[in-house]
């Protein structure tokens, strides 16, 4: 257990370093951009007839620094603001702190992405086991084929297809935004039902996108475990088929946990396209809008958050792994 705590601390440390690197990168990215958006903003204020001091102060509020100070000082002041949880002020959402903008959008990415991931993991892994065990039968072949097919479709094609079929053609599911705007947000039946029905299409897209990957990965993992000696040994000891199946599944699922953590990060990235297509106001949509509006503070904040999410997911995977695999527990 002592080793586990130490490894976790090491992970946490490297995670912090990663976050710091990304924050630094974002800072210098904003600086390296042609025309330095901070300066541009400053000049814009000046042309609007604002006094230089007021304009400088306004820019400092937005970006956490002004380019009139030496670079190092700008950097330390930016980092100092960051440590206090201040990511600056959004430009496109005038005056609103970036933290608040992100906090409003985050649940609408977290909830569909996590739901989609859990659904696809459970379904894909189960289907993978079946596809492996029945790999010589027709059903097993069809399952594997379904995995390869779905895994090969680009995310935006799938999203557009689903939107066309279920919204435009059959008109079963709503499209755009997180709920019906006429409803009062809160803990009431119609609102929750509306949220769920609005989330179905994005969730289904996330789930379908990763389902094929899980299926194929689990299938190959199960096939390799099936050839392990201890499976034959347990068969020769007369262990029941159900227990043997559990032995196989648990051993086969191990390598997938690392992938699970990584894919969480990938799905956050993937949310940019999918939320844009479904016009779903999550983090990905926010990121895209901020890029379009050259809202650098917001962009930086979104990048940082995605980094933190990936780091946390990796730590979580490490923890899970050590719970499930005794060989890494020491």
């Amino acid at each position: 257990m002592k080793g586990l705590t130490r490894r976790l601390l090491v992970r946490l440390g490297t995670g912090l370093v990663m976050v710091w690197v990304v924050a630094t990168f974002t800072f210098f990215l904003v600086h390296a951009l042609p025309g330095n958006p901070g300066d541009a903003q400053y000049e814009q204020y000046l042309t609007q007839g604002m006094a230089p001091e007021t304009a400088r102060a306004k820019v400092a509020v937005i970006y956490g620094f002004t380019s009139h100070e030496p670079l190092l000082q700008q950097y330390t002041s930016y980092m100092w603001q960051l440590l206090q949880g201040n990511l600056g002020v959004s430009i496109s959402y005038t005056g609103e702190p970036v933290v608040q903008v992100i906090r409003a959008a985050l649940p609408w990415t977290l909830f569909p992405v996590l739901t989609g991931l859990v659904v696809s993991f459970l379904v894909g892994v189960t289907a993978g086991v079946v596809a492996a065990v029945r790999r010589s039968s027709r059903w097993g072949g069809l399952l594997s084929l379904s995995g390869s097919l779905v895994a090969g479709v680009p995310s935006f094609v799938l999203a557009l297809l689903l939107a066309f079929l279920f919204h435009t053609l059959w008109q079963i599911l709503p499209f755009g935004d997180t709920s019906d705007v006429t409803l009062e947000p809160g803990f009431n039946g119609p609102y929750i039902a509306s949220v769920i029905s609005h989330a179905v299409l994005p969730v289904a897209t996330y789930a379908l996108l990763s389902y094929g990957g899980w299926l194929l990965a689990m299938k190959s993992s199960v096939v390799s475990v099936l050839g392990d000696d201890f499976i034959l040994a347990s068969e020769l000891r007369g262990i029941t088929p159900l227990t043997r199946m559990r032995y196989i599944a648990r051993n086969a699922i191990l390598p997938l946990f690392t992938v699970l953590a990584l894919s969480l990060g990938f799905m956050f990235g993937g949310s940019v396209l999918i939320e844009d297509i479904f016009d779903y106001p999550g983090l990905g949509n926010l990121l895209l809008k901020s890029i379009g509006a050259r809202d650098y503070p917001l962009m930086g904040g979104a990048f940082l958050l995605i980094t933190v999410a990936i780091v946390l997911a990796n730590i979580l995977a490490e923890l899970l792994y050590s719970v499930i695999d005794p060989r890494v527990r020491r």
Binding site: D229, F230, S234, G238, N251, L254
Partner: peptide
Amino acid sequence: RGRALGYVFQASQNSLNPL
């Protein structure tokens, strides 16, 4: 299997579930 006939694997083979 296991009750009337006991089978022991080669030592180099892993006959136990590692988990």
